[in-house]
Nucleic acid binder design. Structure first.
Lengths: 239, 239
DNA sequence: GAGTGGTCTAGACCACGCA
DNA sequence: GCGTGGTCTAGACCACTCT
């Protein structure tokens, strides 16, 4: 019947249906899904098959299950989810929550490199957010964030952008960041880096480029973070 | 009855038994495990419980399952496993296999910082391996690798160290690297960096520190990689 | 006590690899 | 044709949460 896979297991079909419904907002972040029994009945499959899918989605941080309570759509401002995409830490591993300062937002046509990262056409309009992030009260990261205007209508009308943007994307625009690709390299602090973060000329900094992907795999944000790493590191665990 | 977990599900017990047996070398890397049916019978649990555990171990890259053939202990020199701990790539994502050059090995007492990373006592003996890594034929990474002598007896008697050390650890010393913690920061190229990799003074480089952990969570290797990132990046996917 | 997820079982049938 | 893993089912019982 189908051509690409030739055959799709039942649990795969159930998986796709649930992901699509979550992406469409059939259940909002934080809301409870129907129980396993109910889902199984509605979809005409067994308890075990539904369970396998719910377990997989939980492992992917898309759902949250609590015994005795129910299965919930994961929210970005929850516990560990906060640090899923934030990897700056003190050497040794201690993670700190950064504050945002000097937040600016403007609208402009996207540049070629941004069009490539975000799968836009040249000159499509984007929002450009720039901000300074403080760790322990001291300037530590300078960020530029590019968002397609089409996906975030009237973003610039929002008064105060919150510290954790991904919660905003999710609650205000129905966009859940499900994955990200990052590329890291070393560079020298520019003039702007130096004045923003109080660095001397010739200081090396860590530059992190990130493409954030939605539930459907669509690129929704391009971000460049310029980090001073005299007191901080980028920490990652490989398993 | 127990205090810490209070209760350990059956599948958790089966999981622990299998990990221990693999760590002890009951089955060597590349060898086939008994079939699901056999394991279930021997352990007195059901097919489904064994299956749940084997699936989990497969997801952790500890086992490899092939329909129609069997379940095998994963090897480090297999396909995707090669890149599990190697994240240097060209911008955009293309991964290249690095070559090793100028490999040197010596024995010495460990330093305080290494003792901390590897949970050694001060002055425990370690092997220090230094090497230059070439990507596309050009010097790109300078590495220092510290190994506890106790875990790698007579490592210095091995003539040619292979390009992929983790395969060697596994095949010659029965040590499987199962996870790693990395910390990245930016630094300026040292004199040695400059002469080894042909860099100018004041060039920023990426410094990657890594502690590699065995199946049992024991730290077995400390490594520092100094990477030129004018043509390369450190690429990571967050999910 | 009712409803939820968590564990565990027993068994059926399918798809794949190999001799 | 046999043995392997892969899928799917139906049902039992346990553990947790809330009322």
């Amino acid at each position: 019947m189908n051509d690409t896979p030739g055959y799709r297991p039942l649990y795969r079909q159930v998986y796709d249906i649930l992901v699509r419904k979550i992406a469409e907002g059939a259940w909002k972040p934080g809301e409870m899904l129907p129980s396993e029994q109910t889902l199984a009945r509605e979809m005409g499959v067994s308890h075990g098959t539904v369970r396998k899918v719910l377990d997989a989605l939980t492992a992917e941080n898309l759902l949250l299950r609590r015994q005795g309570k129910g299965t919930f759509v994961a929210e970005h401002d929850q516990d560990r989810a906060l640090f899923r995409f934030f990897h700056i830490a003190r050497p040794g591993g201690e993670r700190l929550v950064p504050q945002s300062a000097k937040v600016k937002i403007r609208t402009r046509p996207c540049r070629a490199i941004e069009a490539g990262k975000l799968a836009l056409r040249n000159k499509d309009m984007v929002f450009e957010i720039t901000r300074l992030r403080l760790i322990g009260g001291k300037p530590a990261i300078r960020e530029t964030i590019i968002l397609p205007e089409r996906l975030f209508p009237r973003l610039d009308r929002i008064g105060d952008l919150p510290n954790t943007l991904y919660s905003l994307y999710q609650s205000q625009f129905g966009i859940t960041v499900a994955a990200a690709r990052e590329e890291l390299r070393a560079a020298l602090a520019t003039q702007d880096d130096q004045s923003s973060m109080g660095l001397k000329a010739g200081t090396p900094i860590l530059v992190i480029g990130r493409v954030a992907l939605s539930l459907t795999g669509q690129p929704v944000e391009w971000r460049e973070s310029r980090v001073r790493t005299d007191q901080l590191v980028y920490a990652v665990t490989l398993q």
